[in-house]
Amino acid sequence: MSVHGNLQPLSWESEFFGLQTAKLQLASEAPLITEAMLACHALVQAKVPAANVAQLDALSQLGFQFVEGEMDCCLAITAQDGLPAVPQRWRVANTDSLDSVRDIARGAFSLSRFRSPWYQPGDSGRFYTLWAEKAILGTFDTHCLVIQGTDAQPLGFVTLRSIAPGEARIGLLAVRPDSTGQGVGKKLMIAARQWCAQQAISRLYVATQSSNIAALNLYLASGAKLVSSAYWLYR
């Protein structure tokens, strides 16, 4: 099977990681992709539905390698989500929380597609730290919710953004290392559902790596249903 698509340069990622990067957008009506076209970039990413075995095989023939799986889930939000039986200690993070949220994000995402041998050690931590910061500033994800401990310091955070009328997506969810195993992840999911109900959002999406079983179990236990799966490949 041949591979047809368009190569989309990823300017921001290229500059941030110091690695000329493009994403292959697969499309049957697009031009035929050749090795010479791919060789113009230091790294090319492709995301393929897990069921498209023929496309996966074709990309393998062009030198693409498996990096990580991705599981996408969706939660149905109802008005009842805005009326919890037990009040939750969460708030929308502001710039006062920047340092604490950065510290949590820096070491929370070891299961990441931004890993060696394709990226340098520390790149993943830098990437997700900036992502969390942008959520607080409202420049990528638009909101960051934090669960506060008794000392008013964040025990964990979750970032969100609207993606369509009535729909939102969780970007990042992370728990402070010394607070794992204490139900903070569950509280963050409740906070996200409450926020969605307050915003009249009826569907909340969240994706995770297929290797992150703990995260997937959290989302399913929170009422999410698995709606799609895909594979990331790099060349």
Rank of each mutant, 00 (worst) to 15 (best):
S2H: 13
V3Q: 12
H4D: 02
H4A: 01
G5E: 06
N6G: 03
N6R: 15
N6S: 05
L10N: 02
E15G: 07
E15Y: 12
T21D: 03
K23E: 01
S28D: 11
E29S: 13
A30Q: 06
L32T: 00
I33W: 15
T34E: 09
M37K: 15
A42N: 10
V44F: 09
K47F: 09
V48Q: 08
P49I: 09
A51D: 13
A54M: 09
L56T: 05
D57N: 13
D57P: 05
L59A: 03
S60Q: 14
Q61D: 15
F64D: 07
F64G: 03
F66S: 04
F66H: 13
V67C: 08
G69I: 00
E70S: 05
E70I: 05
C73W: 14
C74R: 15
L75K: 13
L75W: 13
L75Q: 14
T78S: 04
Q80K: 12
L83W: 14
L83D: 12
P84R: 06
A85Q: 12
V86F: 09
V86D: 09
V86I: 11
P87A: 00
V92D: 07
V92N: 09
T95G: 04
S97N: 10
S97T: 03
D99P: 02
S100N: 07
G107H: 14
F109V: 00
S110P: 05
R113A: 01
R115D: 03
W118C: 03
Q120L: 12
D123Q: 05
G125V: 00
G125S: 02
G125N: 02
T129R: 06
W131Q: 01
K134R: 14
V146F: 11
T150P: 08
A152N: 09
T159M: 00
R161T: 02
S162Q: 15
I163V: 08
P165M: 10
E167N: 12
A168V: 04
G171V: 00
G171F: 00
R176Q: 02
D178K: 07
D178M: 09
S179F: 09
G181Y: 15
G183F: 09
K186I: 07
M189K: 03
I190M: 14
I190Y: 15
Q194K: 12
Q194F: 07
W195H: 14
W195G: 04
A197M: 12
Q198D: 11
I201T: 13
Y205G: 01
N212T: 07
I213F: 10
I213E: 13
N217S: 08
N217E: 11
Y219L: 08
G223S: 11
L226W: 07
V227R: 03
S228R: 00
S229E: 11
S229N: 14
Y231H: 08
W232A: 02
L233D: 10
L233W: 15
L233K: 15
L233N: 13
R235H: 13
